[in-house]
Write a protein that binds this DNA or RNA. Sequence first.
DNA 1: ATGTGC
Length: 476
Amino acid sequence: MDISRLEKISDFEWRIAPRQGMQVPGILYADEALIRGMDDKVYEQICNVAKLPGIVTASYAMPDAHWGYGFPIGGVAAFDADRGGVVSAGGVGFDISCGVRTLHTGLSAETIRGCASTLADALYQAIPAGVGSTGALRLGSAEMDAMLLGGAQWAVDRGYGEAEDLAHIEEAGRIPGAQPDCVSRQAKERQRDEVGTLGSGNHYLEVQEVAEIYYPEAAERFGLRQGAAVVTIHCGSRGLGHQIGTEFLKEMVAGAAGFGLTLPDRELACAPIHSPLGQRYLGAMRAAMNCALANRQVLTHLTRQAFAGVLPEARLTLLYDVSHNTCKVEEHTVGGQKKRLYVHRKGATRAFGPGHPELPEAFRAIGQPVLIGGSMGTSSYILVGTERGAAAAFASACHGAGRAMSRHQATRQWHGRELIDQLARQGILVRSPSLRGIAEEAPGAYKDVSAVVDAADRAGLARKVARLAPLICIKG
DNA sequence: ATGTGC
């Protein structure tokens, strides 16, 4: 991206002044090196989003922003329903409610190293992974609807996990307003045997070591101690979310003219929040959010079972679960006034600051855990929402490293087998059904997650708490 | 991301 087109606010905040139909400015949080590495398309997409009806304050991009469908991945935009605001399927993304959950294990990384290979095999056997992977559950139509309404609460009610898990999930594990009736038969069909599966692409389950602590007070509140082992699960709503995204995108493209919307880019297809199509999308999307929460909850149960077979002394408790592909109704202050807004976060993590009423009691005084997944073989980070961040980008932060290279390019540059051997020499055990998938996910195909996280920290979006280093990686 | 796709 040509940095001369941006107005510098600070070393980590850059502004695009409104022009050519932009209702609000664009704001990009990143350092110079990250901005120079971004595609010009990201600039274009930030500007295009700023042209959508009802957008408030600014069209934001996080430090890991890259070119996406319509909206940039790493984009945040909020809309006021009463001022013609829209909801956009492309503003949420295909993998609805893709997100990250991190669990304590009650064990040290040293203990894990003592049986890493056995544990890796046990996890790989317990966790269905890969394209089209299926799980042990088969949902009939009534159970499907119950899952889509109940999210992680549905899973816990059926014995997958513990009641205490729920308090440590966004919205207590169940997104209200889901409408299974708005989810197509085909979407449900695709999901029938995919609950409790990891999927493919950048999804993973990792056992990690707490390698570094930056903010001891927050780490203490989060129960993170240096040298401890944690488990992180990164996945989403599988075939169901993808099908919903695909169908509504098409419907929104077809419906745009009927709503009198002239879109700067066909891919920005959207519908007024106060329209039957907008409402149907929200109902279906919320059902997909519950699907993702149920999925991560069942995977947690399978993880506990795998640990129990190898390390019976393990006690897996949930630190937090937060999504990074969502549209959520939240209260934010705009021009000194409190407003209920439809906040799209596409590849951006919610990062509520201290005192937010929606946070579980354990974190209310310190702020929300912000879980940032790295690429395979590299570090992940835990940050905490801050007061300053709550006033910027509607309380959002980055979500990961962000791709630096296409999947195709990566497969030409790396070989799965060599990467697995190389990582094993670094003490990182990778298990995956797909060598091609491994090559596509080569660490070198991603941006430096540390630079991304530093930029988010320095921009004040969230504050660094701890770095997690991978020990075992189950890759889809 | 995805029953990966012109």
